[in-house]
């Protein structure tokens, strides 16, 4: 092999009791990619991100970062080595202010000190539009702002690989393009992004590659539009007639309003 990918999983598997959530999962992520992941609920998307982020251990297989085995490293180690995760269910430091939440990430994950740590935290805070709440405790934020804070915390970690889990759900039609711009911006700075999203049109706007997961396996993979148009994805994920014409696109366009309710069910 001439050049190793930035991140690679080999035969990755994760079992919860008898439930095999991920199995024999092989993934190669090149530096600079924006990899989108879609798939029905329960497909193992979030588990995949958690296993890569280190908050959930792998049952089988290996994870390689820069061709180095990191399977046994902790979530904290991975955060300090450039893998930052924005979780689907935000877990802010409730009694700390928004700024302090971000300072934790910039100080420890990005290993910045003094003014540098502050600059990173403030930059991340502004990029998600939370500067108005800088001195408010995170416990006072609404769910949507907590999700913004979760994204900002991953950005403040100054990552090489950014893992995003459903960050667009609940955003309004005008907010989605702003988020897409932010991710495009972050990607352009050289950060590799792996993004799970049900708001598919947000994903296809930036993704360079798309994977559709189901039952812990890859159902389809490749150029985003091709994946969305593939018969398997149409029937399994989008629930459309596999042979219908151009329905996928209109479905995808209408999808965001439908998933707006989702955050509440997670809260």
């Amino acid at each position: 092999m001439s050049s190793a990918p930035l991140l690679e999983t080999q035969n990755l598997g994760r079992k919860f009791g008898q439930l095999q959530v991920l199995s024999d999962f092989d993934l190669r992520v090149e530096a600079g990619e924006v990899l989108g992941i879609i798939g029905p609920n329960g497909a193992g998307k979030s588990t995949l991100l958690s296993v890569i982020g280190g908050s959930v251990g792998a049952s089988t297989g290996r994870i390689l970062l820069d061709n180095e085995d990191i399977t046994r490293t902790s979530a904290s180690w991975r955060a300090r080595h450039g893998i930052a995760t924005s979780y689907q269910i935000p877990r802010p430091f409730l009694e700390m202010t928004v700024l302090e939440n971000l300072l934790v990430a910039s100080t420890f994950a990005a290993n910045a000190r003094g003014k540098k740590a502050e600059d990173l935290a403030i930059g991340a805070m502004k990029s998600v539009g939370l500067e108005g709440y800088a001195n408010n405790p995170a416990s006072s934020l609404r769910l949507l702002d907590r999700k913004r804070l979760e994204v900002a915390r991953a950005l403040a970690a100054n990552p090489r690989i950014l893992l995003l889990d459903e960050i667009a759900g609940g955003l309004t039609e005008s907010e989605v393009p702003e988020l897409v711009d932010l991710i495009r911006h972050v990607s352009a700075s050289g950060v590799t992004v792996i993004w799970i999203e049900h708001v598919v049109h947000a994903l296809t706007a930036v993704a360079t590659r798309l994977i559709c997961l189901t039952y812990g396996r890859i159902l389809a993979e490749g150029e985003p539009q091709a994946v969305l148009n593939s018969p398997e994805v149409r029937s399994v994920y989008l629930g459309l007639d596999p042979d219908g014409e151009n329905e996928a696109e209109s479905f995808v366009k209408n999808r965001p309003s439908e998933v707006q309710k989702e955050p509440n069910t997670h809260a």
């Binding site: 280190g54 904290s76 955060a79 877990r91 009694e95 700390m96 290993n111 970690a157």
Partner: peptide, 12 residues
């Protein structure tokens, strides 16, 4: 505030 979140933010 949150031991797990602290760990995923790089805190040892």
């Amino acid at each position: 505030d949150d031991m797990t979140a602290a760990s995923t933010s790089g805190v040892m």
